[in-house]
Design a protein around this nucleic acid. Structure first.
Length: 430
RNA sequence: GCGGUCGUGGCGAAGUGGUUAACGCACCGGAUUGUGGCUCCGGCAUUCGUGGGUUCAAUCCCCACCGGUCGCCCCA
């Protein structure tokens, strides 16, 4: 009989108090996307597991230990999406968006992501991301545009303590050369490195640079930097991205150790961090990069791409950490106070008619006494209370009381809608 | 996957091995028989995350599990 239920670990309910904040943030972001001429894409919550295995990369943490994978009744292996890029790329290929005359294809999404991890501050098993993907252009100005978009989102919402970190992972040739140099450099020290790094050295040597445990190891400081291994083309590309960022007045820090966890990245990689106090161990707000080989990997024509994912709960956290006020409208236009059983039918009708004209109205459904109904109206910050008692009903009028001034006037029911429209309109203009 | 810490009403928060589990806020009702924000009065946990153990007796002691929270790893 007594069954206690709770939301699954790492998930939360977003209640009305907070959903207003989410709506505000989402609205602001969509406006920016519109300015930048990005269009929304919505893809399924889950995909065939191979989409992520091939797209994100088998050696990544996400694929190895963080996916919510299950088998459906038809025996197919499906996975709740752990990130957005692979899924959007799949949709791009499947729907042949590479054939769209408008190139590049500029997309944005708001989507839940799922990662099986131990929850902590700013890290949930179900998380919300806003993300952007631009497919079909290898122009470094697109890289700059995407970064600019992300920074603009934060700045417009009022964040100040931001740090943009960028790096270049180079093209295939540069990466291969760098990879070989890394293996050569670290192999003599292999036994001194942590367990993870020993496997990384063979699987994905680049990520050794990312290791927090071995950060102090002397070999780390002398490790070959990717920037020294960029070929002419890659170097020029990176230079242009930086030039464009500077032209837009966007400050950045180049960090040659910024590697990013996913396999599909090349050329530009970036992360946006928060420097705000009281942010806990989590500092990354958004991360992304270029992935020129991914579409091909998923069976499409060779198509360059770039994008980022932005954590929305982290964005909300950052807003809070920086004490950014989110304007929230709590007010209610009218609250109908109806007393006596006989008034109910008329009350229901009045409320319906006011609402039909776009006026915000509510009434009591708890069978409260008049005093209780007034308290409710007060709590809801109603601008006006409409009083309908048996007295008023008899005379087909309603008493309209302003909760601010306390003034009260009698209005015939037949002209109530009109009267209220006038009052509320006047209030808004002044 | 590993480690720290916590788990008492809607919320916040005391508390003790023993026959009534403080207090504050919120809420509901009354004083005010039709009018809010102030005041006063009253009501509001057969129960202290779940299960087991120790004990004559456990919310308080022990164990396990579950969950929250913070950190490691990695990232959004």
């Amino acid at each position: 009989m007594k069954v206690s239920m709770s939301a699954p670990r790492g998930t939360v309910d977003i209640l009305p108090k907070d959903s207003k904040k989410w709506q505000f943030v989402e609205k602001g972001i969509k406006e920016i996307c519109n300015n930048y001429n990005y269009e929304e894409i919505r893809t399924p919550l889950f995909e065939h597991t191979e989409v992520f295995q091939r797209g994100v990369g088998d050696s990544t943490d996400i694929v190895q230990k963080e996916m919510y994978t299950f088998e459906d009744r038809g025996g197919r292996s499906l996975t709740l999406r752990p990130e957005g890029t692979a899924a959007v790329s799949r949709a791009f290929v499947e729907n042949k968006l590479y054939g769209d005359p408008n190139q590049p294809v500029k997309l944005y999404y708001f989507a839940q992501m799922f990662r099986y991890e131990r929850p902590q501050k700013g890290r949930m098993r179900q998380l919300n991301q806003f993300g952007v993907e631009v497919l079909g252009s290898a122009d470094p100005a697109v890289d700059a545009e995407v970064i600019d978009l992300a920074m603009t989102v934060y700045k417009n919402l009022g964040l100040k303590s931001l740090r943009l970190v960028i790096n270049s992972l180079g093209d295939k040739e540069s990466r291969t050369n760098h990879r070989n140099a890394l293996v050569e450099h670290f192999t003599p020290h292999k036994e001194e490195l942590c367990e993870d790094c020993r496997t990384r050295l063979t699987q994905n040597p680049l990520r050794v640079l990312d290791c927090k445990k071995d950060r102090e190891h002397p070999a780390m400081k002398t490790a070959p930097s990717i920037l020294d291994y960029l070929n002419e083309e890659s170097k020029n590309y990176f230079e242009k991205v930086k030039t464009f960022l500077t032209a837009m007045g966007i400050e950045y820090i180049v960090d040659p150790n910024l590697v990013r966890g996913l396999d599909y990245y090349n050329h530009t990689a970036f992360e946006i961090m928060s420097d705000a106090e009281g942010f806990g161990a989590i500092t990354t707000l958004a991360g992304g990069g270029r992935y020129n080989g991914l579409i091909e990997e998923l069976g499409g024509p060779s198509t360059p791409g770039i994008g980022f994912g932005m954590g929305l709960e982290r964005l909300l956290m950052a807003l809070e950490a920086e004490n950014v006020e989110i304007p929230i409208d709590h007010e209610l236009d009218c609250y109908l106070v109806a007393v006596g059983e006989k008034t109910e039918e008329t009350a229901v009708k009045i409320v319906h008619e006011l609402r039909a004209k776009g006026i915000q109205v509510d009434k009591d459904y708890q069978n409260r006494k008049m005093k209780g109904q007034f308290k409710a109206a007060d709590r809801l910050q109603a601008k006006y209370v409409l009083i309908l008692g048996e007295d008023e009903l008899e005379r087909q009028v309603v008493n309209v009381k302003s909760m601010q001034t306390g003034e009260q006037v009698e209005v015939p029911i037949t002209t109530l809608v009109e009267e209220m429209q006038g009052k509320l309109q006047g209030g808004k203009e002044s």
